[in-house]
Design a protein around this nucleic acid. Structure first.
Lengths: 170, 170
DNA sequence: CTTGGAATGTCAACAAGGCTGACATAAGTT
DNA sequence: AACTTATGTCAGCCTTGTTGACATTCCAAG
């Protein structure tokens, strides 16, 4: 137990693969990298007294304009009360517009306003810049692997959302 | 603006690399994957009315037994008041021990108790299982790339911590 | 030896953003 | 007409972050 190598995880792969130490490194890499991943937008958000929750809403409304509240809920995995609080401030501040649905009038279709678009862009520019630098220094093959592992790490229902968003932009 | 391809990011790399769309996919992959990454430990923690903050403390005390509060602070990037609250409950619950430093008696060296070790193991078993499955289905080369991109995404000071922890276990 | 500063602990107050539960309303569906 | 769905909203609670203030301990420099 002290060397961190368990009996499990030594299957048909190469022998130095999937040791507990390898897995721990991956876990720590995720933790530290996620901090970097959110650091730049967080700084911008702090200036405006918004939080990560606002960023997430802006991002996914931008990614799928006209999305409904319910869809956003299942993407974000929070309660409607939580989302509503964030959405309310964004609407009040004129960053998001909520239109009654045309086919189903119970639904609200969410859109970014010009100002919302501007902030979303500012945030995602910062985040993309970090991503771009990481991609550049790691190289194209690394990026392939990066995505492959991340996709395998997702819960099935979230992977569905991930793929749907991708398709919607093709 | 609508196709998500900006003028930037089309440097000396291959032409279909580093478009805004590629970068957005990476951003969303990080978001959804991180949710999966924390999902299993979160469920265990909820049972015990602990949170992610407790998990992080347990993880890094386990990774570097005898670490000081200050070191933990710079790894976790929170205030000492925040950390202290979490640490206090872990000490009160008998999961962590705090020993006055031998060389510098102002410092506290932190260790997991047997119970602390047990919980840490339970949490990291769950997290490693997810990681292992992701690694397996993505393959060894993908894992290399995965780590490479994550390391490039870290802030410099955090990358230092990341590498130090790794070295400490070699 | 005294003084300054560093490491730590602790108290109080506050905010963001999760959560649950309850209830209202409008509008599809059967 | 009754049921269900989508949404909004109120109230209250929890975790985990923050700042500011202050005490203690103790190393190190003068």
């Amino acid at each position: 137990m002290t060397d961190g190598i368990s009996g499990r995880g030594r299957g048909s792969e190469s022998l130095l693969f999937l040791t507990d130490e390898q897995l721990r490194q991956g876990i720590e890499a995720m933790f530290f990298a996620y901090r970097g991943f959110t650091a730049d937008p967080d700084r911008i958000l702090a200036e405006l007294s918004y939080g990560r929750a606002h960023h997430r809403a802006l991002h996914f409304i931008n990614a799928a304009p006209g999305t409904t509240v319910n869809n956003l809920l299942s993407i974000l995995g929070v309660t409607k009360q939580s989302l509503n609080r964030v959405l309310r401030t964004l609407i009040d501040d004129g960053l998001v517009e909520s239109h009654v649905g045309r086919v189903d009038k119970r639904e609200r279709n969410l859109f970014l306003t010009e100002a919302g678009n501007e902030l979303e862009r500012r945030l995602s520019d910062a985040q993309r810049a970090r991503m771009r630098d990481a991609y550049r220094s790691a190289g194209p093959e690394a990026v392939q692997g990066f995505k492959k592992v991340l996709e395998a790490m997702m819960d099935t229902d979230l992977r569905r959302h991930y793929l749907e968003l991708r398709e919607g932009r093709e």
